[in-house]
Computed example of a mutant assay.
Amino acid sequence: MSEDTAADQRAPKAAEFSEADGLATVRLNTPGLTRRVKEELLDALRRAAESTTARAVLLLGSDKAFCVGQDLGEHARILEEEPQDALGTVREHYNRIVLALEDIQVPVVVGIGGACVGAGLGFALAGDVRVAARRAKFGTAFTGIGLASDSGLAYRLVTALGQARAMELMLLSTVFGAERALELGLVTEVVDDDAWAERARETALQLASGPTGAFVAAKREVRAAAQGGRELPELLEEEADLQNQLGQTADHVGAVRAFLNKEKPTFTGG
Rank of each mutant, 00 (worst) to 15 (best):
A218S: 09
H93V: 04
A200I: 10
A11V: 00
G152E: 05
H75G: 01
E179Q: 08
V187Y: 01
A240R: 15
E102Y: 09
T30K: 13
I112D: 04
G88Y: 00
Y155E: 14
A197M: 12
G269K: 05
A11Q: 05
A24H: 11
Q9N: 13
T268W: 09
A15F: 07
E237A: 12
A217N: 02
F142C: 04
C116Y: 02
E234D: 11
L171C: 03
S2H: 11
D192M: 08
T5S: 13
K13A: 15
L147P: 07
D63E: 14
A136N: 04
R134G: 02
G111L: 12
L42E: 07
A15G: 04
L79Y: 09
R180K: 11
V187M: 07
I97D: 01
S209T: 12
A200T: 07
P31Q: 04
A166Q: 00
A136T: 02
D8N: 13
L125D: 05
V37D: 04
E202C: 01
D71V: 14
T188E: 01
S173L: 03
Q227I: 06
T143A: 08
L58S: 02
L182K: 05
G152L: 06
A76C: 10
A218T: 10
E3T: 14
Q206I: 00
T52D: 10
D8C: 10
N244D: 13
E189H: 09
E202T: 11
A255S: 15
I78L: 14
V129K: 07
G177E: 02
L246A: 00
E237I: 06
G185M: 05
D71A: 15
A195M: 06
C116P: 07
E102T: 12
R47K: 15
L169M: 03
R130P: 03
T203N: 01
L236K: 13
V222Y: 00
V187H: 02
G113N: 07
D8A: 15
A214S: 11
D63Q: 12
A65Y: 04
S173Y: 05
E234P: 00
V26T: 11
N261D: 15
V129T: 10
L125P: 01
L99T: 09
E81H: 14
R165E: 10
W196N: 02
E40L: 14
A7V: 14
V90A: 05
G254D: 09
G22P: 05
E189Y: 00
D128F: 03
I97V: 11
A20H: 13
V57W: 08
A126C: 02
E183K: 00
D103Y: 00
A20R: 15
A208H: 04
K64R: 14
Q245Y: 01
L87G: 06
T174F: 01
D71F: 13
E189T: 08
A100M: 08
L23C: 03
A160F: 00
A48P: 02
A178E: 03
H93E: 10
A166C: 01
V191I: 00
A119I: 13
A48N: 06
D128H: 09
S209M: 10
D241H: 04
L101T: 06
F17A: 07
T266G: 13
V37L: 05
E16H: 08
E80Y: 11
L242N: 05
A197R: 05
A126E: 01
A44R: 07
V90S: 06
L207G: 09
